[in-house]
Structure formats: structure tokens, C-alpha cells
Amino acid sequence: MIHSETRDNLWTLIAAPTIWALHFLVSYIVAAAACVPNVAIFQAIAGPRILIAVITAIALVAIGLIFWRARREWKGHGGGSVHDTDTATGRERFLEFSTLLLAALSFVSVVFVALPALFVADCR
């Protein structure tokens, strides 16, 4: 178990919100490209919406994996929400717990951002 663990650092901490940012950017570009130059505003944009659904699924799986990994290792280090011990494990557990929280926030935010593509069918 110990051997399969990742050593957490500031980059692993921000991995999940970075995926959120990429998902956001790609969704925005896909929609913008589909609706520019915005002449046929009533035409359905099924293709771009499916594309957004696909990248949403990919982003959610990736964030879910980060969540799952962080949760498993955090539990493995004893869990809990207080991480002020002066040990490398304490620091590791803190980073894992924070990663877990950020992954949860990113997951919800990706779902939020995907919703417009679920409800809006054209370029109006």
C-alpha cells in the first residue's frame, strides 16, 4: 500500500481545479466556435453540446480519480480533519485532505458549468 502512494505537493493540490479550468475553457471555446459569427441563431447545436458532454465526462472521471486517490491515502494516514502535527506524514495528510476538498469543489463546479449545455439548444 505504502509503495503505491503519491507524494503530494502543490502541483497535485491544484490538479483538480486545473482540470476544472481546462474544462471551462474548452467548453467556452466549443460553444463560441459553434455560435460565431452568430447568424443562424435558431439552428440547433447538437454536435457541440455532445462534445461538451464528452469532455465533461472526461473531466469528471479525472477529478473523481484524484478525489478517490486523495481519499484513500488520507484514510490510510489516519484520516481526520486536524493536520497540525510536525511530521512529514502530517503534512502529507494535510495535502491529501485539502486535495480531496478541492476535488469535491471542482467536481461540483464542472457539473455547474456543464449545465448550460444541457439546457441551451441553440445560439440565441
Binding site: 486545473t18 460553444a31 455560435c35
Partner: peptide, 29 residues
């Protein structure tokens, strides 16, 4: 950290009245 990231996905909410398509506004909303 979360606010730091999410705050970069809000900019168009200053531009809701510029005629962008609803789907784009929706992302930022």
C-alpha cells in the same frame, strides 16, 4: 485555492449585455 481558480471563470458576467449567445453566458453564470 478554489476561489483563486474559479475567479478566472467569471469574467463574462461583466459582459452579459454585449449580445453573446446564451450558452456562453450560461457557463459564466
Amino acid at each position: 485555492v478554489g476561489t483563486g481558480f474559479l475567479s478566472f471563470g467569471l469574467w463574462v458576467h461583466h459582459m452579459y449585455t454585449t449580445g453573446l449567445p446564451s450558452i456562453s453566458l450560461g457557463f459564466f453564470s
